[in-house]
Computed example of a mutant assay.
Amino acid sequence: MPVETPVLDDLLAETAGLDALVAELEPAAWGRETPAEGWTIAHQIAHLAWTDHRALLAVTEPEAFAREFDAAAAHFDTYVDDGARQGAALPPGELLARWREGRDRLSEALASQPKGVRFRWFGPPMSTASMATGRLMETWAHGEDVADTLGVRREPTARLWHVARIGVRARDFAFSVHGRPAPAEEFRVELTAPDGSLWTFGPDDAAQRVTGTALDFCLLAVRRRHRDDVRLEAHGPDADAWLSLVQAFAGPPGDSRKPSRGAAG
C-alpha cells in the first residue's frame, strides 16, 4: 500500500507558498541578487528544480541516480552550483514551468511508494517521509532567501516542526562535519512554536539545553541567520558549541550569514 504521511501535504503547501512569491515577478526581477552570494532568485528556483529532479531519480530510477551520485563525487565542490547556474540561464517562464513539473512528479512518486522503502541519497538513505521532509526544509530555506530579497516577511507556520526536527536529529552530523566529536549525552531542546505552543525534543531531565523560538532555531539551522541575530539560549558548553555549528542539511559545513548587529540582546 502507498505510504500516507502528513509531510507530503505540508511539502505541497510549502512549495505553493514559494510559488506565490515568484509567479508574478517580472522577468528582470528573477535576476535580483539574493543574500546567498552569487545566487539570484533564478538560481534559487533552479536549485530547487535541480534537486527535485535528483530526488525523483532516487525514487524512480535508482540506477540513473547512482550515476548522478558518481558524477557528484567527482566534483562535489562545484556540482550544486553548476546545476543552479544552468537552470538560472533559462527564461523565467520556462524555469518556473520546469520547477512546477518536477516537484509535482516528485510528490506523486513519493505518495505512491510502499511503506518501509528507502532510497539512496547524497547523505544517508532516505525513507519516503525523510525525503519529503528534506525537500520541505530546502524549499523553506531557499524561500527565505527569495523572501528576504523581495522584502517580504513570511508568517511562520506549523510546518517549521519538520525543519526543527531535522536540525535536532542532525546534531551529531553537524559536529562531525566540523571535525568535532559528538557529545555523549542527549540535549533537551524546547522551542516556542508559531502558535505559542511548545515543541520539545530530547529527555526533559537533560543537563544541556537549548531554548528559544522555533523560527529562530530553524533560521539558524538552515544558515539563513547568524547566531548573533537570533534569540536562542544554550545551557551547557556542548549545547553552546552546537548553536555555532548547527545545520539541518547534508554536505559540508554551511556558511553562516554575517551578523547584522554586534550581539544578541
Rank of each mutant, 00 (worst) to 15 (best):
V189Q: 08
E190H: 03
L191S: 02
L191W: 00
T192Q: 00
T192I: 06
A193Y: 01
A193W: 09
A193H: 08
P194L: 06
D195C: 06
G196A: 11
S197G: 15
L198N: 03
L198Y: 00
L198M: 11
T200V: 14
F201G: 06
P203A: 11
D204G: 10
D204S: 12
A207D: 14
A207F: 10
A207W: 05
R209Q: 11
R209E: 00
V210C: 13
T211A: 02
G212V: 09
G212R: 03
G212W: 06
T213G: 05
T213E: 09
A214G: 04
A214L: 10
L215Q: 08
L215A: 11
F217N: 01
C218M: 08
L219M: 14
L219D: 07
V222E: 01
R223S: 12
R225N: 05
R225I: 13
R227D: 05
R227M: 13
D228H: 15
D228Y: 08
D229F: 12
R231Q: 10
E233F: 05
E233W: 00
E233L: 13
A234M: 11
P237A: 14
P237L: 04
P237F: 15
P237K: 09
W242D: 05
W242V: 04
L243D: 12
S244R: 15
S244H: 15
S244N: 14
